[in-house]
Design a protein around this nucleic acid. Sequence first.
DNA 1: AAGATAATGATAACCGTTATCATATGGCGA
DNA 2: TCGCCATATGATAACGGTTATCATTATCTT
Lengths: 143, 143
Amino acid sequence: MARKKPEVNSCDCQGARKSRRRDAVLDAVASSDGHLSAEEVHREAKKRLPGIGIATVYRSLKCLCGCGKVSEFIPPDGVARYEAAGSRGHHDHLVCTACGCFVEAVDPEIERLQERLAARHGFRLEGHRLEIYGLCACCARKK
Amino acid sequence: MARKKPEVNSCDCQGARKSRRRDAVLDAVASSDGHLSAEEVHREAKKRLPGIGIATVYRSLKCLCGCGKVSEFIPPDGVARYEAAGSRGHHDHLVCTACGCFVEAVDPEIERLQERLAARHGFRLEGHRLEIYGLCACCARKK
DNA sequence: AAGATAATGATAACCGTTATCATATGGCGA
DNA sequence: TCGCCATATGATAACGGTTATCATTATCTT
């Protein structure tokens, strides 16, 4: 007999069960400023569940990204960073090439033009990544 | 006595010497469609200089990127890809999430708006990376 | 409570990239 | 042309973030 689908949990992935650790990972990401690396998420999550392992953090992050609760941002150094999605909505990043700081930014007009660009090439738009590199105001002043 | 600066070679990096291998790497990248991974560049370069090692390819690519002869593009999978810069000039990428194909595209208006966005946040613009994800025309048709 | 299956932790494996180090090479002055 | 010496090179070990493996535990349904 077909089993009933498990109740909704922090991850809506197909067949996923409720899990204290995944909740802890989501909470760790959601209660931070964002831009946490997996290792930093692990550190935060351990404050909630001391025994949680790094593998679980990676698995949970992947799951939470899959269901849209968390979004992944991969800066030029290739180390993935995570932030809670939804709360602040979509945004792009201005990355300082000197100090490595991030600034979040959105330009509705750019968003709109991207749709146009995708359409022009026959692409069905699903998402995008825009990163602008340069010197932040602080670093530009020092040079 | 101060030595004279060596003559210009395929890499204008400060103090760089002319080198057959670096020339081979540049040629390998330049004579392809672009979007080659380091391993693929290595394979191409070996057709020109059979004994060339992978480490030299990585070193040469870094050097060539540094002086602007080659540009690096890091897709979502994190594996760097290289293409000759200059010839076709700057462009962004439309990446198909189904088949993984790339399409090059530029929208001058987006470029301009990015400058405005950077300025608005006090950033001194140095560069940017724009990748648009979606289904290419071919894959969209199949679904 | 029992059975089925997803979740977990520890850790080995993976893999692209870099560092290391001994040797070879290029380019300059003589 | 020769010799010097900094740069370039090749082989390979090391690195580091991420994933796979596997035995065990937790969760959900009946």
